[in-house]
């Protein structure tokens, strides 16, 4: 444990504001959003939930998913989420708020799909708890105050024709609203042909090496 971490712990014990550490993020989202511990991040699609979770999960963080019975776990494993450190609470009724509060105490990242509208007062109370517990909350749906919101603007599946082929890759545009005014867009493979999600880069066209001039050898 280094000195900075110790200072942070002291600050947390004394209730002073701490400069929050960032959470590892998937390369496809790097630069688009920088999740910090204690933050609330909104998304609007299952594949974005998985992409956002895969960063911290691959780094060894415990994750929990509340109230999403339809989440594709096979896709989660493909996205790089460590299933042995994943807790699912698929069926939550009225008790979802208590469940989220209990998991926020124990896990590093909690995903929730709120079944009901959340009052700003309740959200603020949970945010305070997130800060003190160093937990990230990912909200799949509406939330009063998000530190950033990711949404899928368009997606274009490739690999399927008319009666032939199969789904292979998807080229999607993700929009991130990190501030009131700042909106960033990025085109990503979600996933690419090799099942890895990454930003779409226009590969520089490699020039063929110039051939050596033909010489007479005789």
């Amino acid at each position: 444990m280094d000195l900075d971490e110790l200072r942070q712990r002291m600050a947390r014990l004394e209730g002073r504001p701490v400069d929050t550490a960032t959470v590892p993020v998937h390369p496809a989202l790097a630069g688009l959003v920088t999740p910090r511990v204690g933050g609330v991040y909104g998304v609007d699609a299952a594949s974005l939930v998985l992409t956002l979770l895969s960063g911290p999960s691959a780094a060894g963080a415990w994750c929990g998913v509340v109230g999403c019975p339809d989440l594709g776990v096979a896709a989660a494993a493909e996205a790089g989420i460590d299933l042995s450190r994943l807790v699912l609470v698929p069926q939550v009724d009225e008790a979802w708020w208590e469940v989220v509060a209990a998991l926020v105490d124990a896990l590093a990242v909690v995903v929730v799909r709120p079944p009901a509208r959340v009052a700003p007062k309740d959200a603020a109370r949970l945010t305070a708890r997130l800060r003190s517990r160093q937990t990230v909350l990912v909200v799949w749906g509406e939330w009063p105050r998000c530190d950033a919101r990711l949404s899928l603007v368009s997606s274009d599946w490739a690999g399927v024709g008319h009666g032939h082929g199969r789904l292979r890759s998807r080229r999607a545009v993700i929009e991130a609203c990190t501030d009131v005014t700042v909106t960033r867009r990025r085109e990503v493979w979600l996933p690419g042909d090799d099942l890895v999600s990454r930003p779409v880069q226009e590969r520089p066209v490699q020039e063929r090496p110039a051939r050596a001039p033909v010489r007479s050898v005789s």
Binding site: D70, A74, A75, R168
Partner: peptide, 10 residues
Amino acid sequence: PAPAPATVFA
């Protein structure tokens, strides 16, 4: 075949 769907209806 992969990729698996991100949503699998219960």
